[in-house]
Design a protein around this nucleic acid. Structure first.
Length: 149
DNA sequence: GCCAACGTTGGC
DNA sequence: GCCAACGTTGGC
């Protein structure tokens, strides 16, 4: 079962927001590599929910992929910050998945803690200059992350 | 707010 | 298809 890591700025959308909403569409990914990973997601996959651009940097909890390969409708919406004028309904560029809340960890697994336990080879998140908002996590690494919670 | 890293754009 | 300019990301 593949695992993923998703980055979100909690002041935009936090794990607590997902807990409140129960499910959410993961809209607004506008990077082709991240999009390709989104398209590779399968129903039932787990996703670590990482909080970026905040004081408590780290993995806040777990979500699960509930629906896959959905068209990201925000690309067609001129008033949306995610509007893409080059995208058409006949040939959409951007896709999304629906996530389901699974759990909030008792404590956020801090970025520093992740650095202590994993190499940048093991965790794409830790790679220098990494800006991907969607990335795969090897199952063995995922199991070790879960033990840190 | 700084700035390194890196993706995208567009002129040529 | 090259590459300079520019914009964005995200930790610090």
């Amino acid at each position: 079962m593949p695992y993923w890591l998703l980055k979100s700025e909690p002041h935009e959308y936090s794990l607590a927001d997902l807990q409140r909403d129960r499910t959410s569409l993961w809209e607004g990914v506008r990077n082709y590599q991240a999009r390709n990973y989104l398209q590779a997601m399968q129903k039932g996959d787990f996703a670590f929910f990482y909080h970026s651009s905040t004081q408590a940097l780290g993995i806040a909890g777990l979500a699960r992929v509930q629906h896959t390969n959905l068209v990201d409708s925000s690309q067609f919406e001129p008033s949306s910050p995610y509007f893409d004028p080059k995208s058409t309904k006949e040939n959409p560029r951007w896709w999304t998945v629906e996530l389901e809340f699974v759990q909030a960890f008792p404590r956020v697994i801090a970025l520093d803690t992740l650095r202590e336990h994993f190499s940048s080879e093991e965790l794409i998140l830790l790679r220098r200059g990494n800006r991907l908002s969607v990335m795969p996590v090897e199952e063995a690494v995922a199991k070790r992350i879960l033990r840190l919670k």
